[in-house]
Each structure stands twice: as C-alpha cells, then as structure tokens.
C-alpha cells in the first residue's frame, strides 16, 4: 500500500447515520453524539450543537482512543472497545465502530452511564453495519457507481489539475 486509503460517504449514508444517532439520543437521553474517524476527522454531529471547537475535539478524541489502544495492547488486551471519561457534571462515552470510526457521546446528569452504555451497544451495532457496507463499497461512487479510476475521489477531482494549480497561485 502506498499510503492510507481514502474513503467517502454519500448524503444517503449521512442520513442513515443521523437517523440512528437521533434514535440513540432519544433512547439514552444523552445530549450529543459525534462520530470521529480514527485519523481525527469529524464525520457527523447530532443533538445539541457543541459549544467547543469540534475539529480540535475530534483530533484529541482520535489521539485519546489511539493512545488507549496501545495501552490495552501493553497490558495484553486486544483493545479497549469503549472508554468513559466521567466528570462532575459532564461526561463522555467513547466506543469503537467498525475499527475505523469512534462514537463519542456527551451526556450529563439527565441520564446515567448505565443507560448510555446499554443503548450505546445497539447504536454501535447498527452503525457498524452501515460503515462496513460503506467500506465494502470501496471503488463505488456516492451513487454506488464505480468511478473511472476505481475510487470516487478520482471521479471527483479528475481533470481538476488546473483548479488545484490556481488554488496555490
């Protein structure tokens, strides 16, 4: 492999993800759910809009999760599939989705960690299914059509060299 593989998701994928996350928030009474990919890119946010810088938050989440992955290996565990950071008022629950994405749930005293974990398990299962389908479609464009170069990105920026040159003056 030359470098890391790229991936993309369509508006349909996004809608499905949103629906699952909204149902999860309703069932768990958590405030907000974010999906962050393992490289630190924010994929989706549902629920109360975060009051913090979500790009920075996403990069720290990925670093936190990766560091804990390594810690797990050092003590002989394959992984820590979920993590909890509990504060006095605000808490976070993080869970792995399909080994590529992290579900981050922000919740407060209106719910309990037990309920978030319980409902989170179902949400992780349905999200895992969606993401696995998305990753299995590698080579398919947003409408499910293969791009000319085999990846949707090739279709997207093909012939855009002039635009790229212009962008950098």
């Amino acid at each position: 492999m030359a470098g890391a593989a790229s991936w993309s998701f369509s508006e349909n994928d996004f809608k499905q993800i949103q629906q699952h996350l909204l149902a999860f928030l309703r069932d768990s009474n958590a405030r907000c759910a974010l999906l962050v990919d393992r490289t630190g890119q924010l994929v989706a946010t549902v629920g109360d809009a975060p009051q913090f810088d979500s790009a920075a938050f996403a990069s720290l989440t990925a670093a936190d999760f990766s560091a804990n992955d390594q810690l797990a290996k050092m003590i002989g565990e394959h992984e820590f599939a979920s993590l909890v950071h509990q504060g006095q008022k605000e808490s976070m629950f993080l869970a792995d989705v399909a080994k590529r994405v992290i579900l981050v749930v922000l919740f407060d005293q209106r719910t309990t960690l037990g309920l978030v974990k319980l409902k989170g398990k179902g949400a992780v299962e349905s999200l895992t299914k969606i993401f696995e389908e998305m990753f299995n479609r590698v080579g398919a464009g947003p409408g499910g059509q293969a791009g000319p170069g085999g990846t949707p990105q090739k279709g997207l920026l093909e012939g855009a060299e002039d635009e790229i040159d212009k962008l950098f003056g």
Binding site: A4, A5, S6, W7, S8, F9, S10, E11, D13, F14, D37, T39, G40, Q41, V43, P142, P152, Q153, L156, L157
Partner: peptide, 15 residues
Amino acid sequence: MSMINYASREINCKL
C-alpha cells in the same frame, strides 16, 4: 487517509 464528505461537501486531508 483523505475523507470526502459529500454531505458537507468537504475534502479532509492529514499532513
């Protein structure tokens, strides 16, 4: 791993 988000029309790359 660049990520293309067709919903928010963003290309995200990591340097």
